[in-house]
């Protein structure tokens, strides 16, 4: 995924029935392309956060943001510059892996710090959480084994805080808790 074409928007919306449909409908009717989308409640039950990766070849980002802002239920939009954001994605993949190949898949998963979450005679299901680029790499390396099923969540993102390491407190009363 080239970073020029795609931008990540973190959209705080009211947590009401139908809001996701409004957001998605806006993209379709204005012919904007969504690359990926993830939605979940925040720690404040009045709001949800939608993380949308948009394809800015289909429309200038500024116009997309302005149109989104016109939706009454959209409270706040933050454009996340990839360099100033923490981005994560989750992948689940079931891979053909004969007994002979199994150690290789397990090794690959270990190198990427993923997990083996299910095993059968012919296949393994692995999971990996991490930066989307890392997920891309992992997916590429898994492919030769034969991917039976694959599901990615689409990225979620939050602005980077000025101090990196891990003990983080909530960003604000309406923000999600970083972890």
């Amino acid at each position: 995924m080239s970073t020029v074409r795609h931008h990540t928007l973190s959209v705080l919306v009211e947590n009401r029935a139908g809001v996701l449909a409004r957001v998605v409908n806006l993209f379709s009717r204005r012919a904007y392309n969504i690359y990926s989308l993830a939605v979940a409640p925040t720690d404040d039950e009045r709001f949800s956060r939608i993380t949308i990766v948009v394809d800015v070849e289909s429309a200038p980002l500024e116009q997309i943001v302005k149109q989104l802002n016109k939706l009454i239920n959209v409270v706040k939009i933050t454009e996340l510059d990839p360099r100033a954001a923490v981005e994560r994605e989750l992948l689940l993949a079931t891979v053909n892996a004969s007994v002979a190949e199994r150690p290789q898949v397990a090794e690959l998963t270990r190198i990427f710090e993923g997990k083996i979450v299910a095993v059968s005679n012919e296949a393994l299901t692995v999971s990996l959480e991490g930066h989307p680029n890392k997920i891309d790499d992992f997916e590429d390396l898994l492919r030769p084994f034969g991917i039976v099923q694959l599901q990615r969540t689409g990225r979620v993102a939050l602005p980077k805080l000025d101090r990196e390491p891990t003990r983080l407190t909530p960003v604000s009363s309406t923000g999600t808790r970083a972890s």
Binding site: A17, G18, L26
Partner: peptide, 16 residues
């Protein structure tokens, strides 16, 4: 009708 009119209204409500 709230679904149908989403893209032709400034906003719509379904009273619950």
């Amino acid at each position: 009708i709230t679904g149908i009119t989403q893209s032709v209204t400034k906003h719509n409500f379904l009273v619950t």
